[in-house]
Write a protein that binds this DNA or RNA. Sequence first.
DNA 1: CAGTTGCGCGCAATAATATTTCGCAAAAGC
DNA 2: GCTTTTGCGAAATATTATTGCGCGCAACTG
Lengths: 179, 179
Amino acid sequence: MVYKCENEGGVPDVPSHRLDPIDRKILSELQADGRMTNVELAKRVGISAPPCLRRVRTLEEQGFIRGYHADVDPRELGFEVQVFAMVGLQSQAEADLSAFEERCRNWPLVRECHMLNGEVDFVLKCVAPDLSTFQTFLTSQLLTAPNVGSVKTSLVIRGAKDEPGVPFEVLEERLSKSA
Amino acid sequence: MVYKCENEGGVPDVPSHRLDPIDRKILSELQADGRMTNVELAKRVGISAPPCLRRVRTLEEQGFIRGYHADVDPRELGFEVQVFAMVGLQSQAEADLSAFEERCRNWPLVRECHMLNGEVDFVLKCVAPDLSTFQTFLTSQLLTAPNVGSVKTSLVIRGAKDEPGVPFEVLEERLSKSA
DNA sequence: CAGTTGCGCGCAATAATATTTCGCAAAAGC
DNA sequence: GCTTTTGCGAAATATTATTGCGCGCAACTG
């Protein structure tokens, strides 16, 4: 069970030590099927519905669960193209990094933006209805954005694995060892 | 509304042309909040609950919705490390590509695996509880896997954007132009 | 142009589910 | 050993999901 430590919006202390096996099972089940009914979930984790729902609410409030999303198929919707873009900036000053991140947040075609260590500064995951749409975005938006030095793009030929979230198996394994 | 063309498990013909504005709104709403109740969803898309639920079911069956997932916070759960790995193989024969993909599917730390064009063959998105766990995986699993030529890893310093799914705004814009 | 058919909507009824309330019991603290 | 705390579960209530019609509209047909 999650201990409701009210540390004023502060940083959580020791992450998953605050979760008991039932909480972890709940998270695992909801990660696999986010629309499961509460009664079904309760059945699976081995407690009755009311406490199960309380746990879910608490997990949501504490930020362990950030939200729920339908997993829509991009291809079926006409987004045929997926691209990874490796971006290098000219200046790595914090203000410039933030400015670029903010720009990414405003580009709908950019779904993910992660700052990296090493020679490349950012990796972007992009989707687009077709190649020409992406090319237009690339040349008229990304490449011409302030402070952008180099961009290397790679088209996704095919997806081999795309699992959401985290591997709970690894977490359990790890917790059983440290016990 | 989705036309229930029963083309025997075949490839869908013209993707989102089979979806009317209400269907797209449904997908958009469920992508943003996958646990929304059906009544709330119906209210938002402007129809009553029963037809709304029927549409959702159809969208699920037709594969537009692949599933629902709780979005759990990796950090809160003790997964402190996120890494992108660019992998080059020695042989790009189809059998060897497939073999590597299958291997990725069995590695829990690897959450995503995409085949790319260009010099790099695959990009992998990995998570791990800490750096040493990842290093162990890297050296004793990934680097020693058959046919793996080169691996360049980049640690994620910070995440700037991480939106699930597709930008419906782009889809709507596109459909309004072609009309 | 009236008749017919197919399709999707919404109303109303029913079945499930979510959510609240409350009392009890076990673990933690004193 | 006795409070205090914490979380469970049964029961009651409120919401929601789901099913079963009948209606209207638009396309097709004769």
